[in-house]
Simulated scan of single mutants.
Amino acid sequence: MKYTKLGKTGLRVSRLVLGTMNFGSRVEEKDAFAIMDRALELGINFFDTANVYGSLGGGEQQHGRTEEIVGRWFAQGGHRREKVVLATKFYQQMDNTLDGPNDAPGVSAYKLYRSLAASLKRLQTDHVELYQMHHIDHGINWEEIFGAYENMIAQGKVYYAASSNFGARHLAYADAAAEKRHFLGLVSEQHFYNLLNRLPELELLPTAQDLGLGVIVWSPLAGGLLADDALSVTAGRRAERVKRLSPSQRQQIADYADLCHELGESESNVALAWILHNPAITAPIIGPSSLAQLEEAVHAVDIQLSADTLARLDKIFPGPGGPAPEAYAW
């Protein structure tokens, strides 16, 4: 495994992040334990979760279930907790039976304190390394939220503040607010980015680089559309996504599969390797449902894409033309 620093921090993290969203829904607890154990053996030290992950099946949500599974894995000992850089998130409504004004999705000191306390209990730990706001709250008060983060950092319950699904302007606002407080501020942004969605190249990725923020990529395989044999899948969530593709998008996927076949690499690993090639990216999140998927994904770290291959990928999946404003203005 290869490692890099998380943004402007001195924290070293693996170039792949183990995503746990499937734990408790598509992956049973015993299998989740095996995946996490093997991830550590393979050198993956960066685990990502969220307080709303986990379900009972049949569409019924049991928010917090994934954190509970991770917590029980930590409780086995063997220095599991000490070996993991743990990231979790808060923002969403946690209990649909509550309808109070402070139970709705959003970001506030109130919500941070309550959500963090509940997550720490489920995770059976006294701290998280990275505490991420799961979505932008357009009414956010940076004085309030950074004051709460500073308090939790001072208590050792959180090591770093981070965001997810923020726009470039929000990262800039946060940086300006943190500078006024002489506070480190956000250290990373978790964002949706892949060959089929290259819009972040316009503003988000350049802004993150300018501000020294790490970028963690979610859905690097575009919900499975960039995974092996995507067009031939006939059942499940991926099949539903395939049905919604336009003819031109289907052709892109077919051309991409042909290229990967020429390279002798899986579609999944080429998609991951393409993301890892970008200097703005810290690591993509992988969400294996089996040990085999985990073992396969680790190979992506060692794939070196040639200039010719990168050019062919650009031709198949045209980006926005680079960063703004040069991408669209003279």
Rank of each mutant, 00 (worst) to 15 (best):
K2S: 11
L6D: 12
G7F: 05
K8C: 07
V13M: 06
S14T: 00
R15I: 08
L16T: 00
L18Q: 11
G24E: 07
D31I: 03
F33E: 13
A39C: 04
E41K: 05
L42Q: 07
D48H: 02
Y53P: 12
Y53F: 12
S55Q: 14
S55G: 10
Q61E: 14
G71F: 01
G71K: 01
R80S: 04
K89C: 06
Q92H: 15
Q93I: 04
G100M: 12
A104P: 11
V107P: 12
Y110A: 06
S119Q: 01
K121D: 13
K121T: 08
K121W: 10
R122M: 07
D126L: 02
L130R: 03
M133D: 09
M133Q: 11
H135V: 06
G139F: 09
G139H: 12
I140R: 04
G147C: 03
V158Y: 08
V158L: 09
Y159Q: 15
Y159C: 14
Y160I: 00
A162P: 07
A162K: 02
N165E: 15
F166Y: 10
H170D: 14
Y173K: 12
A174N: 07
A174Y: 06
E179V: 05
K180H: 11
R181H: 12
F183V: 02
V187I: 09
Q190Y: 09
Q190H: 07
R198P: 14
L199M: 14
L204E: 11
G212A: 00
L213V: 01
L213I: 01
S219N: 09
S219I: 01
P220W: 03
A227E: 13
D228Y: 05
D229M: 02
V233G: 01
T234Y: 06
A239V: 04
A239D: 14
A239H: 10
E240D: 15
K243N: 10
Q252M: 10
I253G: 04
L259C: 04
H261Q: 13
G264W: 15
S266R: 03
V270I: 09
A271F: 05
A273D: 14
A273M: 09
L276V: 00
H277C: 04
A280K: 05
P288M: 01
L291I: 05
A292D: 13
A300C: 08
A300I: 03
V301P: 08
Q304I: 14
D308T: 03
L310C: 03
A311D: 15
R312I: 03
G321T: 08
G322C: 00
A324Y: 13
P325R: 00
A329E: 15
A329P: 14
W330Y: 13
W330C: 09
